[in-house]
Each structure stands twice: as structure tokens, then as C-alpha cells.
Design a binder for these strands. Structure first.
Lengths: 221, 221
DNA sequence: CGGGATCCCCCGAGATACTG
DNA sequence: CAGTATCTCGGGGGATCCCG
């Protein structure tokens, strides 16, 4: 990997030179949620050496995908934000996320869910499911991560963090993934304690209809 | 890179563990065109160590994305082919290709165009442009690479290699990329010798309308 | 000749410590 | 908070060799 280049005049090769670098795809995922500070990124990427995060951010800046902004005023902090060009990668990241979501079975030993990954998962799952039939605010808590989704006027918006007045509050348990895959009906999920729920139980059916990511069945060829 | 894992329960992280490995994205690109032999892949990936190609193919097989098939009969050869799961990555690869195509300016020193990259570029460019308004067969020659596209019934099919009876035969020159970006009109491209053409010149307008990939203008933020 | 395996060298990545 | 510095280790580049 003397240089990261492939010496091919090819769009995919150009993209590979960016997203093929270790950690870069996850850094982009986190920045897609919104501008982030260095320490925010480091916290959302457990295991990344700080020196490598520095290197990657400089590369993204050099490639025109992100900008470093030193904020003046009340909070004197440094934030990294995506450029238009960086944001243009979102459809590709979503397509990769959707494919990868099909690979998810039981979590591996020691795996965590971060806030950015939860927001991304909800956004992608909403794109794959049916449009919402009614308005609602739903918060989702998985592990330490919290996000909320706004179902409004047939569109879905996923955002990080909590919401002050959700119509439904979901907390995960083992098998939450089965709910999104449709393997587990909302009624059974409730009965078996797969999800802890606060709010209108009928909303859980709507949630399951809007957010869906089936398992990939690995039939060969 | 002790292990390629990210220890995150996240679809994008799963995808990154596959496409984040060096050369894997380009190997997948080549296999998307169709089953390929080891030597075909090596020829289409200039610079890849054969040992690494072996490793990557084994990983793709272990991950269920590709299968190794020892052909019996007339041609006793080994071919690698994508599984259903591997083929399911095509939308993601196309989205990445489309983004990366916007990055392409003048070729860098020593860059080549391979057959698989040309077929991919044409397929992706067709998806971004207008549907064809009439039937035709067009062959495109860029460097050593040759591909042809079938415009039939409003759909476009890109395939590797030549075609015995094309309605139009295009050979590249510097600035061919400008034609796809719309920077250069077909008429001017012809007049300035950007493309060498055999066949009906009117077809060049249709070609330019169907296959289009604009440059990314790098306006910040 | 196709389809790899083996070897050495070096750089990128992980880990930890430290600083403006 | 936002990085830099240093060390170590393993993966990738490159060449060569092997086997049916």
C-alpha cells in the first residue's frame, strides 16, 4: 500500500482509493449525521488510534470531502463537517449499509452500537420499508446508543439523541433484529419481551412496517 | 489491521470489512461482468500480487460472495463467479462508481482502462442518463479495452468485447470524458477529432444523451 | 501455461504515552 | 480537548519459484 492508488482510470477505483482506507467508511458514516468534534469521532470509533484518526481527517480534507472548522465564540472547539462532495457519497453509503444490514445476525462478542450507526441504520431501514401511514415520534434505545425518528407527512427523519415527548419509546432486547427482518411479529415481540415499550402498542406495528431490513438468505450461486 | 473487524454491530461496518480490503472492490467489479479465471482477474488488476489475489478470492469465498468452480470438459479451467449475495452488492458498487466517475478528470500518469472498468462505466453512465430513444449497437474502444452496448426497447445492456455488426464504432481521444460530462457537444467532439467514428454520425447524439456522467464541481460545504 | 505458493522487505495500522 | 510521538507487528508489494 505504498500509495493507495490503483492506476486505473475508473470511477470505482477512485472511490476505492477513498473508502478503501481503514476506518474511512465509518468516519464518513459519523459525519453524515452532522458536524462532529475530534473527540466525538474518537468516541464513536472504539479502537481507532488517535493518530490514525488525524491522518484520515487530513486525507478527507485533502480530497475535498470534509472541512475542518475552528469555531469561534462561546464554544471554542474544532469541528469536522462534510462538504457537498462528501455528502454526495450518502447514496453509496446507504447502499452499502443496506447490503451489510442483511449480513447482521446475532452480535459478535464485544460488538457495540454507536449513536451514528443507530441513526444510519434507522435511516436506511426507513428507505427500504413502507412509507409511514401516520405521524409519530419514536425513540429507540439500543445499548448505550439513543436515536429518534420523526414520522411526519409520509416521510421519515432519523436524528441522534433523545426526544422530549415521544409517542413510543423502544428499548432493545435480544431478537430486536428479528423484528426488523419480519421474522418476529410485533405482537410476539411484545409478548416475549424482545422489546420494552412505552406508549401506544399499536404504534409498534407501524414501526415494524416502516423499518425493515430482511436477512440475506445465503442461497449459493 | 490485526483483524479486519470493527467491533460494531452495524451494517456499514460489515460492508466495510468486505469492501475495505485492498483490491476487493475491483475484484468484485470484474466479477460483476461475469465469471472470470484467475489469470483474467490478474490481467485486469495490474499491480496486484498473485498471492494477494489468491487471499482475496479465498476471503470472498469464505464470506459467501463468490464460488470457485473447477470446470470439467472441453476447457479444463477454474473460474470464479459471484453468488447471489455477491451480486447483491451491485447497487452499492454502482453508487460508488457513479460518485467516483464525478472525480475523473484527465487520466493520471500511467493509468489504464480495463475491459471490466469500461463495461462498468458504461452500465453506470446509462443508469444516470436518459433512456435510449431508439435501438442501436455501439462499440467503444478506449486504449486496449473494448466493450459494446445494446440499446434495445428503451433499455441498455453493456457487455465486454467487440460486436460483429455495430451501428456505431467509437474510438477515444483526449476529451472523450468531456463528451460524457456534456461539456463538449457531440458536434464539436466530432469536429475537433475527440472521437473517431464509424457509422451514422446522428447516433453520436443519442449516445451522448444516454451515457452521461457530469463532473463533480467541488464547491465547498 | 494456468494457477497458484514462497520469500523478503517495508509501510500502514494498533497500542501507548505524552504534550500544547 | 485535540492532537503528536514512538514503538511494534502484520499485511501488502514485488520477485521468484513450483506443480499438474
Amino acid at each position: 500500500m505504498a500509495n493507495r492508488e490503483y492506476h486505473q482510470y475508473c470511477g470505482l477505483a477512485r472511490a476505492a482509493e477513498v473508502v478503501g482506507q481503514r476506518w474511512t467508511l465509518l468516519i464518513l458514516r459519523d459525519l453524515m449525521v452532522g458536524p462532529r468534534r475530534f473527540s466525538d469521532l474518537a468516541a464513536g470509533l472504539p479502537g481507532i488510534p488517535s493518530s490514525l484518526l488525524t491522518t484520515r481527517l487530513k486525507e478527507l480534507e485533502a480530497d475535498g470531502l470534509a472541512v475542518r472548522e475552528a469555531r469561534r465564540g462561546a464554544d471554542r472547539s474544532v469541528v469536522y463537517a462534510l462538504t457537498v462532495r462528501g455528502t454526495a457519497l450518502m447514496p453509496a453509503l446507504d447502499a452499502l449499509s443496506l447490503w451489510g444490514a442483511g449480513e447482521l445476525r446475532e452480535p459478535r462478542e464485544g460488538e457495540t452500537v454507536t449513536e451514528a450507526s443507530l441513526v444510519t441504520a434507522l435511516r436506511v431501514a426507513a428507505g427500504a420499508g413502507a412509507p409511514p401511514s401516520r405521524d409519530a415520534v419514536v425513540t429507540v434505545h439500543i445499548g448505550d446508543a439513543t436515536a429518534h425518528v420523526l414520522l411526519r407527512g409520509g416521510t421519515v427523519t432519523a436524528a441522534p439523541g433523545d426526544h422530549p415527548a415521544p409517542d413510543l419509546r423502544l428499548t432493545d432486547g435480544p431478537g430486536f433484529r428479528d423484528l426488523l427482518a419480519g421474522t418476529l411479529t410485533p405482537a410476539r415481540a411484545l409478548a416475549e419481551g424482545v422489546v420494552a415499550l412505552e406508549g401506544d402498542p399499536a404504534l409498534l406495528d407501524d414501526f415494524a412496517a416502516v423499518f425493515t431490513v430482511p436477512y440475506a438468505d445465503q442461497a449459493p450461486a
